[in-house]
Nucleic acid binder design. Structure first.
Length: 256
DNA sequence: CGAGTTTGACCCGCGC
DNA sequence: GCGCGGGTCAAACTCG
């Protein structure tokens, strides 16, 4: 399966009074094997002008988007847990029989520190910049052409926090020009800009303990919707960060 | 002027 | 020991 996320949207700039969101359409392919999210923004027609109607529409769209984000997030979490259990349980049990608890703990910490994740990200094949938006801030410190792949490999360090040890390597795939292979090394010791927003939202949405409750609930928390709207207007990249974070999670699961 | 990028030089591990 | 290749450093450069 190939999950692609189309981020072809113009950010909504609050200071730009000439245009505002006329319609935000959220399409979702129901096929489980292919999650395809896309947003569209159209230029405003001044004659169409009922702002409160548009606000209501926007809220509805946000509710749907949040519904889908939440159920997707739950699904991804479950997949990762299943995978972890499948991969580790037999080995772990056998290993724990022979190794002392403390050694196991130390080994686990070591593994967490040296964790390497490979993520495949679909990009525009004509885009040569090797830039992958994943909600973190990166500083490029090198570029090399490797033997096995004619396209250069770029080296990045996380520059969001000075103490963050995470590095990533980005290289175009040999097989598919429209796919870049991103290798992450280490664990972030801070939240991404996108996670900061999601964290705030999670606090707001604690009342929704399960996705079923959300789907059964006829009326969503207005405050939550308002807050999402605030994030959308304050952070013009919020939507793309959200989409990028979700897509990287999906692709991450695919990789395993 | 500060932050980020580019790029050649350098370091280090590995295979022969 | 030598050469090769991947990874990192750091000075020069670019850009906002």
């Amino acid at each position: 399966m190939a999950a692609t996320i189309d981020l072809n949207l113009s950010p909504v700039c609050p200071s730009d009074h000439g245009t505002h969101v006329k319609e935000v359409s959220f399409s979702h392919d129901d096929d489980d094997d292919d999650d395809d999210l896309s947003f569209e923004k159209e230029a405003d027609d001044p004659s169409a002008g009922d702002l409160s109607n548009e606000n209501t529409k926007l809220k509805e769209k946000l509710i749907i988007a949040y519904d889908k984000y939440y159920s997707l997030k739950t699904h991804v979490k479950k997949l990762m847990q299943d995978k972890e259990e499948l991969e580790w349980s037999p080995r772990k049990r056998k290993f724990e029989d022979t190794v002392q608890q403390s050694s196991w703990k130390r080994l686990n910490e070591e593994l967490a520190r040296s964790e390497t994740k490979i993520v495949y990200v679909r990009i525009d094949p004509s885009d040569k910049s090797l830039v992958v938006k994943d909600g973190y801030q990166w500083r490029k410190y090198g570029q090399k052409v490797t033997r096995d792949n004619p396209s250069p490999r770029a080296y990045y360090k996380c520059s969001f926090a000075p103490t963050c040890p995470v590095k990533k390597k980005v290289q175009r795939s040999m097989d598919d020009d429209g796919v870049v292979v991103v290798t992450y090394e280490g664990e972030h010791n801070h939240r991404s800009t996108m996670q900061e927003a999601a964290y705030a939202l999670a606090h707001e949405s604690e009342i929704f303990s399960t996705s079923e409750r959300m789907f059964n609930s006829p009326k969503l928390d207005e405050g939550l919707v308002e807050q999402m709207a605030t994030y959308l207007s304050k952070d013009s990249n919020f939507t793309s960060k959200l989409a990028a974070a979700i897509s990287s999670k999906i692709l991450e699961v695919e990789t395993f």
